[in-house]
């Protein structure tokens, strides 16, 4: 077999000015626009009521005690442990002591939870709408163009990635179609946004989606029963082993400074 012929396609230089550049510019601008739209749509975090704050911070206190107990002498640790465990088991820190043991209300009927869901929906919409529009725009005007050639060879697996919208089987993989260029910019513009908007931007949908994987990343999501968390923490405290870091510190010091 003969060597595969190097394909040469004569492209109109206007392709660059009228397709490649517009797509790129539009993508960058939508990203920036989305960033500002997200800022506008964001609702300020709702203020928690005092009992809720107390409930949450008391839990954190228990966790702190568990994590840093080694600074306490055995006596004061035992005293604290006894207090925390009994307080947790009695539900002293609960924001709503009467609601203890009752099943959690359906999150859909809780207006506070609804607000969170609405916020997520808004974020999703801000992502979906422009994406759909631009995709439609590109499909309508620019589909089927081969707009650039990559300066390096690639394996045929990349064909579907780089040449979507161009239905030619024998075309070299290095040619990139306009629709594929759209996808490449869609996923690859994050560094550009970081440069323009600062690293904490909400321009890119990929990072958006990652953020939404765990919306209630806080320790006390609305769906968790605080009473259960407290009982759990009480159990953790009960079984933990205590070691006093100050024990033998005098010998450690002497060893450290002896050198």
């Amino acid at each position: 077999m003969a060597q595969p012929v190097v394909q040469t396609i004569h492209r109109d230089p206007a392709l660059f000015w009228w397709i490649l550049l517009p797509i790129t510019v539009v993508m960058v601008l939508t990203g920036i626009l989305r960033h500002y739209a997200m800022i506008l749509l964001q609702s300020a975090p709702k203020k928690q009521a005092l009992p809720q704050i107390r409930q949450q911070r008391s839990l954190v206190r228990g966790i702190n005690l568990r994590a840093n107990a080694n600074v306490l002498s055995p006596i004061s640790f035992q005293a604290r442990k006894a207090y925390m465990v009994s307080a947790y088991q009695e539900g002293k820190f609960l924001a709503d002591p009467e609601g203890r043991g009752k099943p959690r209300p359906n999150p859909m009927s809780d207006p506070a939870a609804m607000e969170g869901i609405m916020g997520m929906m808004k974020g999703n919409m801000a992502m979906m709408v422009p994406q759909t529009l631009i995709m439609g725009w590109i499909n309508a005007f620019f589909s089927g163009f081969v707009i650039m050639k990559l300066p390096f060879p690639l394996t045929p697996q990349f064909k579907s990635m780089l040449q979507s919208g161009v239905g030619t089987r024998d075309l070299d993989v290095r040619w990139v179609s306009s629709l594929s260029w759209y996808f490449l910019t869609l996923f690859g513009l994050q560094p550009v946004y970081n440069f323009i908007l600062g690293s904490n931007n909400s321009a890119n949908q990929v990072t958006q989606q990652m953020g939404q994987m765990n919306p209630g990343a806080g320790m006390m999501g609305p769906e968790q029963d605080p009473d259960k968390l407290f009982l759990n923490e009480a159990e953790n405290l009960e079984v933990m082993e205590h070691r006093w870091i100050l024990e033998g510190v005098e010998d450690r010091l002497l060893a450290k400074f002896a050198i």
């Binding site: 100050l246 510190v249 005098e250 400074f257």
Partner: peptide, 15 residues
């Protein structure tokens, strides 16, 4: 002795 140990720990953390 508690005092001594705490001072010791402080020095251990920042010599």
């Amino acid at each position: 002795s508690h005092s001594l140990r705490h001072f010791g720990r402080a020095i251990e953390l920042n010599d």
